[in-house]
Design a protein around this nucleic acid. Sequence first.
RNA 1: GGCUCCGUCGUCUAGUGGUUAGGACACUACCCUUUCACGGUAGUAAUGCGGGUUCGAAUCCCGCCGGAGUCACCA
Length: 483
Amino acid sequence: MKKEVVSRYAPSPTGYMHIGNLRTCLYEYLTAKHAGGKFILRIEDTDRNRFVADSEQVIFDTLHACNIKYDEGPDIGGKNGPYRQSERLDIYKEYARKLIDNKSAYYCFCGEEEKTEVEGEFTVHHCDCAKLSKAEIEKKLTAKTPYVIRFNAPKDDKSTTYHDNVFGDITVSHKEMYDIVLLKSDGYPTYNFCHIVDDHLMGVTHVLRGNEYLMTTALYTLIYKAFGWTLPEYYHLPIIMTVDKETGKIVKFSKRHGSVAFRDFVEAGYLPEALINYIALLGWHLGNSDEEFFTMEELIKVFDPKDIRKSSSVFDYEKLKWMNAKYLTQMNLKDFYKVAKPFIEKVLNKTVNMDALLKLIQPRVQILSEIPEKIEFFEKLPDFDINLLANDKKKTTLEIAKNVLTKSLEVLGKVKDWNNDNLFEALNSLATEMGLKAMSVMWVIRLSVSGSLVTVGGATEIMEVLGKDESIARLKSTLARIK
RNA sequence: GGCUCCGUCGUCUAGUGGUUAGGACACUACCCUUUCACGGUAGUAAUGCGGGUUCGAAUCCCGCCGGAGUCACCA
């Protein structure tokens, strides 16, 4: 019988959810769920210096918003708890001691060292603490000398090879390895150590993580070996890149290159579903299909980690916007209103025909934050140069505009059912009657009610949104300015 | 700098020895049209370079070049 697939997402509580981490999380989730397995959330809070209050909540909220459901986690519990590493300190000490007992690790009393990197020269920790006698160690321990526990990495000329399911066999020479710290002097473990202990104890079978671990994983496999544990399946993910605006170079997607936090994207008006769909495609592709749109359910069905690509990819905001627009236009009006409401209310307080307004903006925005500037004119008629009513291309003059406005007011006053079709019909016949092109009439009316050269929707659509009273009031005020 | 990985249109990608090198975003043109969008049609655009292997190479091998990652008591 095949073992159940278990994957995990193990973020550090840094206060925000990086979009790259979100992709890692997505792939981990999909890998587990595609195989009908289990997905665990574990908080890696072993660095007290970087701890940010409330970040756990950010993680919970993000996963919830993205519809990523974990089977075990700090807030919901599970049989492999606790799920915060800060609550598992005794476990790490116990396992570190096992490694000391079988000579795979040792106490190091050297104290903190400054990292030495001068002009490309790299040096690595080296000491003789491993050779200390039992008596000497006991003496230092009873004297409460601060110590760390280091892994006893091989010192020979050989190398270690492990298999990564994305990158293939990775071989690292033992000369590249050194005695990494397992347990810090403050009693907390390092990532290098605790992720191994936890993954083993929690039964994690599939490890997906950023490609920055590709090299050190060789050393990690040696720690597994020291414990006598079996290795999980490894999948190292390609890095997400971005174009540095200053240098034009392609660099790792990070904070200093703009918005990388999930929350920033939501505030800008991206839908979590669109974001998830987009990042799923950043490094993964479904066979030789051209399909680009996937719901979470579909992703679970088709996502196979063997289709993860090796080369890094550049995050393309334009394509994300396009995809977001697709999601926006496919929503029904009610759902669209739900997500658009906060952005609409930023500038619009008066009562308008909301359904008509939503229909106008839905196909015209890519991200929701574009809404306010597009609908501002509905709130209050902006000042505009009255001479714009005269336009050669539209075949209008101020005199024509005046006549159009005067006659329109008569015609429109008689419109009973104030909707786009009726308004268009009324103005279109008026144009014929006056011997004008519809284009000319529409230009005058649209400018008069919107005060804007470019608007969402045409003259009659705008009037439908504004309602009869407001539309007529605006036409009158513009007419008054001509006189 | 050592080590490791990567390299198809500007970007995301399909392609696993024989394709007119396909799709998507972006861009351009045209159509639609009450401005702007949506939508529709068409177009520009890629195998980093150099050597092999082969009848034949984006695909296999070697070298170079370019890019990235890593070298912490951070994860």
